[in-house]
Design a protein around this nucleic acid. Structure first.
Lengths: 237, 237
DNA sequence: GAGTGGTCTAGACCACATC
DNA sequence: ATGTGGTCTAGACCACTCA
């Protein structure tokens, strides 16, 4: 095994590969910087630079005093917090979620184009997100099917409130990034029914593509809710 | 002058201070890393770490082969690109902007709360952003007044299409970050008139607070447009 | 060619978490 | 006490920009 690698960028690529191939498993610690330095025959500082880059990308997580680990991904609370809730004094909010339906479908041409997925079938999950029992968001979630086949045997009540941690635990998929597109439309009949609203009511739609550790799209999600209750926050840099 | 500073974080704070106080001026190069190392009696690597942190924050800009400089800020095209334009084949889009009005006003209580500004008066600028001559966005821009007093003598036609570079050049203010809030409402009469639309039409409102090199709010902007033509993109990490 | 930042080394010592 | 990552040093050499 000759080493062609030169420089911390190649090392970073090597480490990224280890994560992709599952040699470094999600949520688990990687070898110490000192041992990696020995293994690759470089100075510790060089290892540190490579690790720092991956930590920047969200692939690795550094923990002072403990080992560096492969990221387990976002926790998935990132959707509901975008709604403005009518603040009833200091009362606690009780967000929850409910899966209405799941089924295997043929891949949608539009979704295939957006995600670049080459699989033949998808798992389509309908669910509602609620606050204090009131339905706020109606979500359609599409997952590529070889990868998420474990969910095929699930029933609606087997799903947890937060999906992303469940992806990590059950399917070995860590979501570390997502791209949202926010648009407005008039509510369709089917959506209105689920949300107990009138057809034609102003609605917001958020289409999201979520990415895993390797930068590949692993989820497509289309959510609809009451435009009047919606507020989206973002930073521009 | 004794040095109490220890570590690259203190150095970063020192450098940030130099930028705040104008000792390092926006758009201009800072001393080389070697000379800074000598000046502060630390190793070059330590200087590099401090500089890297500020570069990360967008305060400094590194340029391989040339000197590191204080950032001149964002270029301000970050608003209009959020609309979906009906693509007429491969035709080029021609975005532009027009200032309708500017005046000095007493500070708005709500804006004061959002920005933390303690000044007494603001400059309020109305402008329209157009694509191919069609009004798409109606913006109200609020600027704190000691800082932007130079604009008091301007007439509408003195303003350029992109505001942020103009802030930098004319007022020494570099915008490097902003926070957007996207919400939905029904169009008010005054807004509808400017945009050639009907009152009560679905409208999107984007409220933005823009921050300068020192992290202080320097602009409040409220923009309204046709919700049906709007699309907002953001990344979640 | 002179000056800048970018990469890398081989150490030292510090700060934190854990046993 | 041990092992981890965090900070720092004092060099060396490389890569880029520009006069």
């Amino acid at each position: 095994m000759e080493k062609i690698s030169l420089g911390y960028q190649s090392l970073a690529a090597t480490f990224r590969y280890k994560v992709e191939e599952g040699m470094w498993r999600i949520g688990e610690p990687i070898p110490s910087e000192a041992s990696l330095a020995k293994e690759y025959g470089v100075a510790v500082g060089t290892i540190r630079q490579a690790v720092a880059q991956l930590a920047d990308e969200g692939v690795l997580v550094k923990r002072h005093g403990k080992s560096t680990a492969v990221s387990s991904g976002l926790n998935g609370q990132s959707m509901l917090r975008f709604f403005r809730h009518q603040l009833d004094g200091q009362r606690q909010l009780a967000p929850s979620a409910m899966v209405l339906d799941l089924k295997e479908i043929a891949i949608d041409k539009n979704i295939a184009k957006l995600t670049g997925w080459s699989c033949k079938t998808l798992l389509k999950i309908h669910r509602v997100r609620l606050v204090d029992g009131n339905p706020l968001l109606y979500e359609m979630i599409y997952l590529p099917l070889p990868k998420f086949k474990k969910f095929l045997g699930y029933t609606p009540k087997d799903f947890e409130d937060l999906f992303y941690p469940m992806y990590a635990r059950s399917c070995g998929v860590a979501v570390i990034k997502a791209k949202d597109q926010v648009g407005f439309e008039l509510m369709k009949k089917a959506d209105a029914k689920v949300l107990s609203m009138k057809e034609g009511h102003p609605a917001v739609r958020v289409n999201r593509i979520a990415f895993d550790l390797t930068g590949k799209p692993v989820e497509y999600r289309s959510s609809v809710g009451d435009a009047m209750a919606f507020q989206y926050s973002a930073e521009v840099n």
